[in-house]
């Protein structure tokens, strides 16, 4: 027989755990409604199609939108091959012993380095040492270093999920390692890798601090035309507006956030979709 005190205790505990969890859901809802209610009025074509301005009614996100698109395209094309190749190397080729261990621990630690520190690295190496200046290229290289560990981890996890029987089947036909890797392992692991890559990019698109350090500017009134151009990004424009005292600019910031978060949510949704499809397809 369970004593009433124990039952009461159990009920109270369950109640607290439930409340704690649903509070976080509530926070998300409050956050989203707050931003929507602040920003929706400013969200129109003129907002999407204007450059920054001292007058809130004339100000827009255009430079940020194009800057973010450029930056993401560039970051993706740098970080995806490097991250995926590094993941393939660690998982399929792997080096044993102390060096392998160092690479391993190093990746885990890199993932925990604050993004602003990557900014300082980018500033010194890309902006100043390589002389790329405050360009899209500097920003993209910095962000690539930042998200590489995430892509590596995602790649390794998806590769580990590929059954060994497939590898052995391929080797038994006289396949070489790179045939097995590109012909068998990569195609199976690809959906998982894509999920990880999209999530990593959705993190990168919201990054602000490292870009401030490498010199992205918030007040820019042109669209970048090449990788050596100066640029701004959506989060930076949002930061600039949010930092001003006028309520109108706060609402502009909220409108910018709506755009930014929508993009991020769509990316997350696509990632979940791919993951879902993958789980259905590959059952061994």
């Amino acid at each position: 027989m369970i004593s009433p005190t124990r039952i009461r205790k159990e009920k109270a505990f369950k109640f607290i755990a439930t409340v704690a969890t649903w509070t976080s859901v509530l926070i998300l809802i409050v956050l989203l409604t707050h931003i929507l209610s602040e920003g929706w009025r400013w969200l129109d074509w003129q907002f999407m199609d204007s450059f920054p301005s001292r007058f809130p009614e004339k100000a827009g996100l255009k430079a940020g939108i194009f800057g973010s698109i450029w930056l993401m395209a560039l970051t993706a094309s740098i970080s995806i091959p490097i991250g995926v190749f590094a993941g393939l190397f660690l998982e399929e080729y792997g080096i044993k012993g102390i060096i392998g261990k160092i690479i391993e621990v190093n990746m885990a630690n890199l993932a925990g380095v604050p993004s602003i520190v990557y900014g300082l690295l980018g500033l010194t190496v890309f902006v100043r040492y390589f002389g790329f200046d405050r360009s899209l290229l500097s920003g993209a290289l910095t962000l690539s270093l930042l998200i590489m560990p995430v892509i590596v981890v995602a790649t390794r996890e998806s590769i580990r999920a590929v059954p060994n029987s497939i590898r052995f089947g391929a080797y038994a036909m006289g396949a070489r390692k790179h045939h097995v890797v590109f012909g068998q392992v990569l195609p199976v692991a690809l959906p998982g890798i894509m999920t990880g890559v999209i999530l990593a990019l959705s993190r990168a698109i919201g990054e602000t601090a490292p870009l401030i350090i490498v010199g992205a500017v918030s007040y820019i009134s042109f669209i970048p035309e090449g990788i050596m151009d100066e640029f701004t990004v959506m989060p930076l424009q949002i930061y600039n507006w949010a930092g001003r005292p006028q309520a109108d600019f706060h609402q502009l910031a909220a409108a910018g956030i709506i755009v930014l978060v929508s993009v991020m949510l769509v990316m997350n949704f696509v990632a979940v979709l791919i993951r879902h499809k993958m789980q259905k397809r590959y059952r061994f």
Binding site: L28, G206, P235, I238, A242, H250, L260, V261, M264
Partner: peptide, 24 residues
């Protein structure tokens, strides 16, 4: 249902949280 919500919560850019703190 909860897992994806937590994932979204952790994926929201920090600048958004800053705005939320300042204005809410």
């Amino acid at each position: 249902t909860l897992k994806p919500i937590l994932e979204v919560l952790s994926g929201i850019p920090t600048i958004v949280y800053g705005f939320f703190a300042l204005t809410f």
